[in-house]
Nucleic acid binder design. Structure first.
Lengths: 220, 220
DNA sequence: GGGAATAATTAGATCAAGTCCAACAATTAG
DNA sequence: CTAATTGTTGGACTTGATCTAATTATTCCC
């Protein structure tokens, strides 16, 4: 990602070629301003790059789509989640591991720094496209959880269960994050919100019984 | 939706104006063919409308976006789900009602007629955009469930719980549908898949205890 | 039968997202 | 200094999506 823009001491294979002139952060900042001023839909990539002082094409050197700009915080969350999952001791029950990893990840969102999109989405004029882009990010989280679970669950329905748990847990977490963001600065830490809604899902699938017995509900 | 295209006896306020010439179904059929022939991304709206024998602009009389074409079956599923929810007798525990409504809705997908996107998505070249459009549909299902639950749940965290349950249940359901579609024509009915993964979620949130007591898991 | 009112369709212009390619600029390795 | 490497830029192009005005087909009413 960052080729020349510092952060690496010096012993990495010295990079050749022209160094990056405009950082991702500059584009992000310009975009945030414009989104808040005019809303997301009425902000063009051209306006963003103009304010950032680069050419329009440069934008696509850093982002693959305009919607990428909104969910950067979630990208960080994804790597944090992945790290937390791989750091799990092998003897931890898989579902408990997922729950804990989510709560650990939640600590990365301090009470003050909620993702911009979530707190300001009214003024930014969020709509279907934006929600969908956010959901795609959520799906990436689910993929990480599913991958982790599929290596630790057993039984005939392991694959289905892994995916179901992953999507269900991420759904519940999304609800918690949304509520937390909406509650404004005077709120409990995100971790508390998450714990409340994520645990029932994990408990329902039975953290100690990977493949729970199916109980037919009365229908019709 | 259908203004002049039959189906209404005659006592509805007689429709005036030019009758619709090209039906949605014609566009859908043309699009399905082209998607299977060339893939989704390499099929343009112009090609679709040409094959359907209408002008390009007419497309947007029937659909708001190209991606609408892929998830039509899910739109039908949404109305079915909404109907099933409102048809619930008031004394049914809310979470049980959601579970039943989902299973009832699943019957609409016979073993033979799986949504086209799900069965053919390799050849159609599904990608991020497509997933996002599908997720937006899933979100609509969650909204319907949330709306239902928010009128029936009580307690301080009712709103959060309603949304969490809705998103979690829809997530689990999505996993089931995906697996069911992938399993090909020789498979159990979708209802069975759904029951297996949806019930644990409902049970976890406690179908008879709308606001379950929070149990703190050991962390760190 | 002959208009108004109504609604679908169409053509055409326009905008913005995203892709592609070739030229140019800045840097490092030798 | 030269060559290789890499970021940046300009420009053309495709396509999805919006908008407006004009055209066409139909029903209602006289």
């Amino acid at each position: 990602m960052a080729a020349n823009t510092g952060a690496e001491p010096s012993n990495a294979p010295a990079t050749r070629g022209r160094p990056r002139a405009s950082s991702k952060a500059m584009l992000e900042e310009a975009a945030s301003e414009l989104f808040l001023e005019n809303g997301y839909a009425r902000t063009t990539i051209e306006q963003i790059t103009q304010r950032a002082g680069v050419s329009r094409n440069t934008f696509f050197n850093y982002f693959s789509a305009k919607s990428d700009l909104l969910w950067i915080e979630l990208d960080a969350s994804l790597t944090a989640l992945t790290d937390a999952l791989v750091a799990t001791p092998p003897e931890t029950p898989p579902l408990d591991a997922v729950e804990r990893a989510l709560l650990v990840t939640a600590r990365g969102f301090s009470a003050q720094r909620a993702p911009l999109v979530l707190t300001q989405y009214e003024v930014m004029g969020i709509d279907g496209e934006l929600k969908a882009a956010g959901l795609a990010r959520a799906l990436a989280h689910a993929d990480a959880i599913e991958l982790f679970l599929s290596t630790r669950l057993a039984g005939p329905d392991a694959a289905l269960t892994a995916r179901a748990v992953a999507l269900a847990v991420v759904g519940a977490a999304a609800a918690a994050v949304g509520r937390w963001a909406a509650d404004g600065p005077d709120r409990e830490p995100l971790e508390a919100y998450l714990a409340r809604v994520v645990h029932p899902v994990v408990a329902g699938y039975g953290s100690d019984a990977p493949t729970p017995a199916r109980r037919d509900p009365a229908i019709g």
